[in-house]
Amino acid sequence: MSDEPSLSIDRRTVLKSGVAVGVIANLPAIADGAEVKVAQPVNVTVNLRINNQTHALTLDTRTSLLDALREQLGMTGTKKGCDHGQCGACTVLVNGRRINSCLTLAIMHDGDQITTIEGVGAPDDLHPMQAAFIEHDAFQCGYCTAGQICSAIGMLKEAADGWPSHVSANLTGGVTLTDAEVSERMSGNICRCAAYPNIVAAIQAVRGGEA
């Protein structure tokens, strides 16, 4: 049904639902030995545009954008912390917006502009946000850091566009990025080392043009 040239499905069998469902482990008995059809993986090809480079990939439809980056492309800067949208470590920018790459399918993103931490800056060519994170010690173990930085970049754009937040005093009066505003807007990125105050400081420094 798809007319997109970059997206072709090489196996079109629509599988019947309920096939080969794992037996719930605490049910009293194993299902009898009747022959059960095992669902076959489906591969599709997709062109992903990541950090201004196009990658043609053949992917299992089940592949999350996160796993495509990490396991297919070896771009491991984007991290898997929970795989369920509960931590933010996998945050990337898609068409300039921050999203959780664990909760989206790679095949849904052909044609999108995807920016990962590798595209934000390099050790010898740091983005101001990256430099500010170093200067303000806005990380410890470093595992949530890529997600924090991508999220911070996306967040500043949202604020610049005048988007209010949960803690905004009013919805229509424009955005003043107080520390409380930054904290609320960055709350989708968990840092168990709890560098939060330093993350806020780093973002404020970038916003203020200090970094």
Binding site: M75, I117, P123, L126, F133, I134
Partner: peptide, 19 residues
Amino acid sequence: MNRVDGPLKVTGRAKYSYE
């Protein structure tokens, strides 16, 4: 002093176990 491993960590170049 800033962390010496900072540039690797903020650019996603620090490799963790699964990587």
